[in-house]
């Protein structure tokens, strides 16, 4: 996984609650067996006026001028500001893949859906929960004439806005550690292989039917 330490970027305000993973990356793109290449299809149904299909060259597709990602003010944005319950719906990791592939590294919202939130951390995408008042305030700043820039410092757990305002945020210590170091979680777990085997041995004595589920 890519390391995440300190990062400065432009904020794109997506003023919708309950943005679901079907909206983030529609199902026809999930047919891919790759992890990359989803960026051009991020928010496909909102972003383009035609029907998106996998493999399409998106440079000439008609864009929806009313969708915020198409607003020239937010070109090159890498921080997505949005509303509650972002990422609800399916477990597709294609959603964080698409956001990352587009160029987003940080998400700011009052709340995130559970599986999506987990998936972000596995990919070096940082979802930050802020209270609704702060989010409202950031929406005001981000929708002004001048795009809002924010510096995110994961180690210090702070956000610094262009005007010098400093906000702090919470993050789980283990996830923070993994992101800062860009750690491979599977490798970490395999360091406990002995403990896993010991558990299996104990469990096999108590509940032998749990093992070899399909192997008969």
């Amino acid at each position: 996984m890519e390391k995440f330490q300190r990062f400065t970027g432009k904020v794109c305000p997506l003023d919708r609650a309950n943005v679901d993973t079907d909206a983030i990356i529609p199902k026809q793109f999930l047919k891919s067996i790759q992890r990359t290449g989803f960026g051009p299809y991020l928010f496909d149904e909102w972003r383009y006026l035609d029907r998106g299909e996998p493999g399409m060259d998106c440079t000439h597709r008609p864009k929806n001028p009313n969708f915020v990602l198409n607003d020239p003010r937010y070109a090159g944005a890498s921080i997505l500001l949005t509303r509650e319950n972002f990422g609800c719906g399916s477990s597709r990791e294609h959603a964080p893949w698409a956001l990352m592939d587009y160029g987003f590294r940080v998400l700011l919202a009052p709340s995130f859906a559970d599986i999506f939130f987990n998936n972000c951390f596995k990919n070096g995408l940082l979802p930050i929960v802020l209270d609704s008042t702060t989010i409202d305030h950031l929406f005001q700043e981000a929708t002004g004439e001048q795009a809002l820039e924010i510096t995110v410092d994961l180690l210090a757990q702070t956000l610094t806005t262009g005007s010098g305002e400093v906000l702090s945020f919470l993050v789980d210590p283990f996830r923070k550690h993994c992101l800062l170091e860009g750690l491979d979680e599977i490798g970490l777990t395999l360091q406990h292989a002995e403990a896993i085997r010991a558990y299996e041995q104990r469990r096999r004595a108590e509940a032998p039917w749990l093992f070899r589920a399909t192997g008969r």
Partner: peptide, 17 residues
């Protein structure tokens, strides 16, 4: 439900954090 990274984690370790 889990994401694809966790699918790989379960395949490799039979465990999840």
């Amino acid at each position: 439900g889990i994401g694809t990274s966790e699918v790989e984690h379960v395949l490799a370790t039979q465990c999840l954090l």
